[in-house]
């Protein structure tokens, strides 16, 4: 399935800013009114930009409900980002790890819950956490049921942990599970792009879909901007560039000049918060948006 050349990021809709928490709070205010999200997305769709990243953040569920009600959801190609990592970290801090696993299981509708009780129950009895990962994916994917979905991205918190641990079996399980159960392409978000390329090559992953940081400031490019550019030049992975503005730090013109100069970027994730901002961004990216 083809990737959209431009994918809208979701951070601005769910109150996340990697520039500062002040900026994040301003975003919460701006988009507390779903009408504004709708207005912006209608404009993007009219410009031919249909790709949209969305996590299973509780706020994202509200947005999806609204988009379904407005008939906008069918115009979008969704790229789920799972799981909603920060939420789990917070719950783990609040109720501990066993408490959190219980909450996850109980949050699923009864039909899924029954299948998890079988799969997850067996998994727990066998103490095999790899299989529990499947139940986890199922619960997270409920949010996106019935919507046009192009690929499922595993959150960088999990990918980077798995890469550092060399958790080949778990990553292979995710890869196969998403393909088999959902018929979708698995994707990986990472802040360790060269490490991913090295590991995935060794493990025999075939042309993985990877979302990773590329910006002229070198921000969040580990171990360095140069090493990431070298890994990109290998053209082993299909790359979706993220943090292209270095979390709002770079001016768009400069930022997209750099991204457009890179070889082999398949798609770009952009955060747009107003119609004017979206128009400027799409022009600067200057790509064939497939209209």
């Amino acid at each position: 399935m083809e990737l959209d050349p431009i994918i809208l990021g979701h951070n601005q809709f769910i109150g996340v800013s990697h520039l500062s928490q002040d900026a994040a709070r301003a975003r919460v205010e701006r988009f507390s009114d779903l009408e504004r999200v709708g207005e912006l997305l209608r404009f993007c769709v009219s410009e031919g930009v249909r790709g949209m990243m969305l996590s299973s953040h509780p706020r994202a569920r509200d947005i999806l409900d609204y988009l379904r009600a407005e008939g906008l959801a069918d115009s979008l190609n969704l790229y789920p980002l799972i799981p909603f990592a920060q939420g789990y970290v917070r719950r783990m801090n609040a109720v501990g790890m066993p408490g959190m696993l219980k909450e996850i299981a109980l949050s699923a509708p009864w039909r899924t819950r029954a299948s998890i009780a079988v799969e997850g129950g067996l998994g727990l009895a066998r103490r095999d956490l790899t299989r529990l990962l499947g139940a986890f994916v199922d619960i997270e994917m409920l949010t996106f049921k019935g919507l046009e979905t192009r690929a499922v991205f595993l959150h960088d918190a999990f990918v980077d942990l798995a890469l550092a641990l060399g958790a080949r079996e778990q990553l292979e399980f995710f890869d196969g599970f998403v393909r088999r159960r959902y018929g979708l392409r698995p994707g990986y978000v990472t802040m360790n792009f060269p490490l991913l390329v090295g590991s995935f090559r060794r493990w025999g992953f075939d042309r993985p879909l990877v979302m990773t940081t590329f910006n002229s400031a070198g921000f969040q490019m580990n171990p360095s901007r140069e090493a990431c550019e070298r890994a990109l030049a290998e053209r082993y992975a299909e790359v979706v560039a993220m943090s292209t503005l270095a979390a709002g730090y770079l001016k768009p013109a400069e930022a997209f000049r750099y991204v457009n100069s890179l070889p082999g970027i398949a798609s770009v994730v952009v955060g747009v918060s107003t119609v004017e901002h979206a128009r400027e961004t799409f022009t600067l990216i200057g790509r064939d948006t497939g209209i």
């Binding site: 942990l161 550092a164 580990n222 171990p223």
Partner: peptide, 15 residues
């Protein structure tokens, strides 16, 4: 000065 001005990469990034 933003963290972006001061950023230096690390050999492996976990959280």
């Amino acid at each position: 000065l933003y963290k972006q001005d001061l950023f230096e990469g690390v050999p492996v990034y976990v959280g």
